[in-house]
Amino acid sequence: PDFTLHWNGITIHFKGIDEEQFRHLRELLDRGVSLEELEELAKELIK
């Protein structure tokens, strides 16, 4: 499924991740993950 997340004025689209992965990403963003960390995470998910 696809998810869209609005965070700090940025709209991020996640394609092909499951709800569990999306929930994990939201928790990280709510905790204050940096954009660099988010990019690293995205690379991991894409593999």
Results as ranks from 00 to 15, higher is better:
E36H: 14
P1L: 14
I10M: 08
F14D: 01
K43A: 12
F3S: 00
S34Y: 05
E19Q: 07
Q21D: 12
D2E: 14
I17A: 03
H13I: 15
D2L: 11
E39P: 05
N8V: 02
F3D: 00
E36C: 05
V33L: 10
L28P: 00
K15Y: 15
E40H: 12
E20C: 06
G9L: 00
R31L: 12
E20A: 13
L35M: 11
E44R: 11
W7A: 10
L28M: 13
A42P: 00
W7H: 11
T4G: 01
N8D: 06
E44W: 02
F3G: 01
R23M: 14
L5A: 01
K15Q: 15
R31I: 08
K15M: 14
T11D: 14
G32L: 11
R26I: 15
R23S: 09
T11E: 15
H24I: 14
I46D: 08
L35W: 09
E40V: 12
S34D: 07
D2A: 07
L25H: 00
I17K: 02
E36D: 13
E37F: 10
I10P: 00
E19D: 09
R31N: 13
D2C: 13
K43F: 07
L25F: 09
H24P: 02
H24T: 14
E39G: 08
Q21R: 04
Q21W: 08
H24Y: 14
T4H: 15
F3Q: 01
K15D: 15
L28E: 07
H24G: 09
E36Y: 07
I17L: 07
G32F: 09
T11V: 09
L25C: 02
L28Y: 05
L41Y: 14
V33S: 13
G9W: 02
K47Q: 11
E36M: 12
L29K: 02
I12P: 00
R23I: 14
I12M: 04
E36P: 10
K43R: 12
L29D: 00
I10K: 09
E27K: 10
T4K: 09
L29S: 03
D18E: 06
F14P: 01
H6T: 10
I10S: 05
R26W: 12
L41I: 15
T4W: 03
F3P: 01
F14W: 02
H6Q: 12
W7G: 02
I10Q: 09
H24M: 13
E19S: 07
F22W: 10
R31S: 11
E27Y: 05
E20L: 10
L35D: 02
E27T: 12
E40F: 12
P1S: 13
K43Y: 04
E37T: 13
G16W: 07
W7Q: 07
D2M: 13
H24W: 13
E27P: 01
L38K: 00
F22Q: 04
D2P: 06
I46A: 15
H6M: 08
E20I: 10
E44G: 13
H24L: 14
L29Q: 03
L28N: 04
R31C: 08
W7N: 02
I17M: 05
S34V: 05
D30P: 02
L29V: 08
G9T: 01
E39C: 04
L45F: 08
G9Q: 02
I17Y: 02
E36S: 13
V33I: 11
L38H: 00
L45I: 13
